[in-house]
Design a protein around this nucleic acid. Sequence first.
RNA 1: GCCCCCUUCGUCUAGUGGCCCAGGACAUCGGAUUCUCAGUCCGAAGGCAGGGGUUCGACUCCCCUAGGGGGUACCA
Length: 518
Amino acid sequence: MIRTRFAPSPTGYLHIGGVRTALFCWLFAKKSGGKFILRIDDTDQQRNVEQSLRPILDGLRWLGIDWDEGPEVGGPYAPYYQSQRLEQHRAAVERLLATGAAYHDYATPEELQAEREMAQREKRSFVYSRRFMAETAEQQARFEAEGRRPVVRLKMPREGKLVIDDLVRGQVEFDWAQEQDHVVQRTDGSCLYHLASVVDDHDLAITHVIRAEEHLSNTPRQVFIARSLGYELPEYAHLPYVAEPGSKNKLSKRKLAKYLKNRDFAQRFEHGRKIAQTVGLDTTPEAFNPVIVDFYRQVGYLPEAIINYLALLGWSLDDKTEHFTRQELLESFSLDRVIKSPASFDPAKLWAFQDRHMQQLPIEQKVAMVLPYLQKAQLVTAPPPSNVEPKLATILQAAGDRIKTAGDILEYDYFFLPDDRLHYDDKAFDKRIRKADAAGLLAKFKNQLAAAEPFDTETLEKLMHEFVASEGIKIGRIIHAVRVAATGRSIGLGLFDTLAILGKPSCLRRIDRALERL
RNA sequence: GCCCCCUUCGUCUAGUGGCCCAGGACAUCGGAUUCUCAGUCCGAAGGCAGGGGUUCGACUCCCCUAGGGGGUACCA
């Protein structure tokens, strides 16, 4: 049984790169009927773990990356919080000490630093002299008499090689002599991450450690710990990290300002910000940032699109397949087709996936996605009046692929605004009505509309063509004017759909209002 | 400094010695279609980091250089 884990720290947000790692772990486990475990590495978090974890848990759930064991779902290997496993970590350190794989060290930081600098000056790698190593009680007593306090260090091998068969990188070799005698337990008795991680992975029966490549260099010390503890080694797979748009630096939440200089990034951000603001969300970089998964949830992206995009960020099936459902991913994913080099996050490409997945979404589901945005913008009450959902379905039908994220519905607020609260875009009004000298035509066309029966798309289209023919004008002269009069804007859905959805009374009132405005 | 990893169009990638004067996708730029917008269709431009080998033949194998990343913490 394959068991993989994702082990986030409770940082308060779910990073897009972290999601990619979680996704690969999830896919790998699930495709073979294994288990995906969520473990919380909260050893250095003092407070508010619950609160800092919330966005991570919610984000993963929203994306459909569900965990078989972990917070809120429990499991046979509980607890799944690293902070609740301290006893096991300490016990492991004791065993390391007992078998001679680790020792008490009484060197001061300054003494160590001096050795390090010496090594650097001599252009060789630093290896601790073990001058303050204490392996017996007598040695310990002597150092303690000098007022020194110990840490526990690994007694790493000083010869030979370690060969790791990494599932994405192939064979990677390390010289043991290059490794440090890393600290595993601090003076205050607390344990360090690598020790805790190895012990927890073993205790949770993790078979495959799939994680970011920043841990590749850390693997030797972890292998040493695991071996010394008599553990069977897990398989390792080190994933490349997700890089910034247009560079190979690691994607970072803190560099939003820099990323916004990238045109695509800025466009997607602006699009999202407009939506977030109209529904009253916090749009500070802390809360609203395209590097964080919440951004996409708030703007109304589809989890399926994000999953599809992220899966292809560092993995591919072949030279042409790009569109994957979750099920298809589960069927075709494999670690050996994971790329070794970092991949830049490209918001424009994510957008293209969003567009495609949205186009394929059935109307009823779009209605359900979009409705909350109208409610948050106070254009529709909650629960909605009975006519709203059918109306929304019609709008979405007419909108076709113009609505690319759920929040885009807010572009069409004019379908929900009372006629007397319709806002006119001044530029559009000026150009298409005032300068176009369209008042007379509008008034005439309004009379035609008043007589239209039934008031549906086909009838209105026919009406318009007859009108244009009888007036001997180009259709452009009237059609844009009508659009601006009815919606306040110069762009939108097909005009006849728009008018039909608005209904006759609204259309007439809005044209009147536009004429009065002149 | 030392160790490890990585390097194909702007970006994501296909490519495991001849199928490649390198294929697809996003983005870009043209053109067509439409009442605007979105889309759709057609087309264009754009790349094997550099240098040495090996080979009849190299994007593919080897070496070197350069660039990027990670580790080298009583961080995770």
